[in-house]
């Protein structure tokens, strides 16, 4: 399979994702930039890497979303190609409209780098489908991870099971105490309506080895890179 790893000017997580695909799968990682994005038509999976695309100028993800690559991704999203957006990738997915809502500044107004716990709220065959994991431990590192959507959207997300992950205690308890950035409903990641697209603020690629503090990230990315059969 061909795994597209998107790099905008300012993206800075691309190398570890390429390394992940090479280390933990037999697939071919393809770095997609402004110079070769037409290749996106031939990809099996798309990962929008984290970082500070276009310096987070204006607002995180907006310039990337309106760029030719952003438009191409929006176009492709309509054909159900699985897309994983991590951190800035999540922000970009929201600004393209592929996912609803918007990521705003952390309530503390500071960048926050720490290990957090997530409650798996809802599964998807493309991202997390085993019943064995109710909570995951992943690191976050962001300045604008505070998810916001309208009340109507929130009801819709709940109704359709689109809330993928919520910040929680190690045992899956949801409360303000475990919400690092003020996200509405402690939302850390959401799917699109048909669950082929996942956007999340935490970094699964950085939780890929016990030496790094957790390998729970493998659960998400390995599923994403696997061959899945969907009805």
């Amino acid at each position: 399979m061909k795994i597209a790893i998107i790099r905008f000017p300012g993206t800075n997580n691309e190398h570890e994702l390429i390394r992940y695909v090479n280390t933990y799968s037999k697939h071919e990682p393809i770095l997609i930039t402004n110079n070769n994005y037409h290749q996106l038509d031939n990809m099996d999976r798309i990962i929008i890497a984290g970082g500070f695309s276009y310096g987070d100028y204006l607002r995180p993800g907006i310039i990337a979303a309106k760029s030719p690559i952003g438009k191409k991704i929006k176009e492709l999203s309509l054909s159900s190609i699985p897309i994983l957006g991590i951190c800035n990738g999540f922000q970009i997915l929201c600004e393209t409209g592929i996912l609803p809502g918007v990521l705003t500044k952390n309530l503390s107004t500071r960048f926050i780098s720490k290990m957090i716990n997530l409650k798996v709220q809802s599964k998807s065959p493309y991202f997390i489908n085993s019943d064995q994991n109710n909570t995951l431990q992943l690191p976050i590192a962001h300045y604008e991870g505070n998810y916001y959507c309208s009340h109507e959207t929130l009801l819709e997300l709940k109704k359709k099971g689109q809330i993928a992950f919520q910040y929680s205690s190690p045992t899956g308890q949801i409360s303000d105490e475990y919400n690092p950035n003020g996200s509405i409903n402690s939302i850390a990641g959401i799917y699109n309506a048909d669950k082929t697209v996942l956007g999340l603020m935490p970094h699964p690629e950085r939780a890929s080895d016990p030496l790094l503090g957790s390998s729970d990230g493998r659960i998400i990315i390995d599923t994403f890179l696997g061959d899945f059969h969907v009805n």
Binding site: Y20, H203, S208, L212
Partner: peptide, 9 residues
Amino acid sequence: QQYDQTVQA
């Protein structure tokens, strides 16, 4: 905690 500790994995 204001410094990204984990980028580059």
